[in-house]
């Protein structure tokens, strides 16, 4: 279901390709590099985030996704470590699961946002950018009180509400919500039930996928040290 590859692009400092369900996305992180004069911040790193869709040219839809990704990355990257520098993040969707058919006007951005967040995690690690903590994002559809994690676009269309939730993972525990985007009808108690189930899922993803992958990656990258 989920597969990750890192260090695919030679010209970027860090890159990762993630296949999550039917969504395939590649992210590249370059930094810290020299910013343009208007981008420079005196005591922090500035972020330049670009999202490109799977089909066609970027529109306001991608602008909104950039804004959400930016608010997440702004808080999780240790920006004070790279003052007056720029970190460039480019996310390119290769295969997107946001519409049921090509001509459908109803667009679900949650799978895209979810894949972009998770892919950026691996790309940032590959680039060696300092992060305050690990983070895991999940895309969840709720229908009649039943949760589906990583739903397909058809499941999203049938759901009552759909959510993207991203947790901060410290010492293996999901302790803070970094981002929550909910759309659709949901009641308060359903919402909190969803959040607590998501905590379990996120910790599972972290232990079974993220930790394992990073451990293997470090072993492979530093094989010359043995």
């Amino acid at each position: 279901m989920t597969s990750v590859n890192t260090s695919l692009l030679q010209k970027s400092d860090g890159s990762a390709e993630l296949l999550l369900g039917s969504t395939k996305v590649i992210a590249s992180v370059t930094g810290p590099i020299e910013p343009k004069a208007r981008q420079e911040l005196p005591n922090q790193a500035s972020l330049e985030i670009l999202i490109r869709p799977a089909v066609g040219l970027a529109t306001t839809r991608e602008k909104l996704l950039e804004d959400k990704l930016r608010s997440l990355l702004q808080s999780i990257i240790v920006r004070f470590k790279y003052p007056r520098q720029l970190i460039q993040v480019v996310v390119q969707f290769l295969i997107s699961d946001s519409k049921r058919t090509e001509t459908d006007l109803v667009d679900y951005t949650s799978n895209d946002l979810n894949a972009a967040i998770n892919c950026c995690y691996y790309a940032l690690i590959d680039a060696g950018i300092a992060l305050k903590a690990s983070f895991v994002s999940l895309s969840i559809a709720v229908k009649n009180g039943n949760l589906t994690v990583n739903p397909t676009v058809y499941e999203l269309a049938q759901s009552d509400s759909h959510h993207v939730i991203c947790f901060n993972i410290e010492k293996g525990k999901a302790n803070k919500i970094l981002l929550l985007e909910s759309q659709g009808d949901i009641k308060e108690d359903e919402l909190f039930a969803m959040i607590s189930k998501a905590v379990e899922e996120a910790e599972k993803v972290h232990h079974e996928q993220q930790r394992k992958f990073v451990k293997e990656k470090v072993e492979n990258d530093y094989v010359w040290k043995q």
Partner: peptide
């Protein structure tokens, strides 16, 4: 044909 090059390909290319 859409042929925009992003800075993913090379930081030299401006977004």
């Amino acid at each position: 044909i859409n042929c925009e090059i992003s800075s993913m390909a090379w930081a030299h290319f401006d977004n």
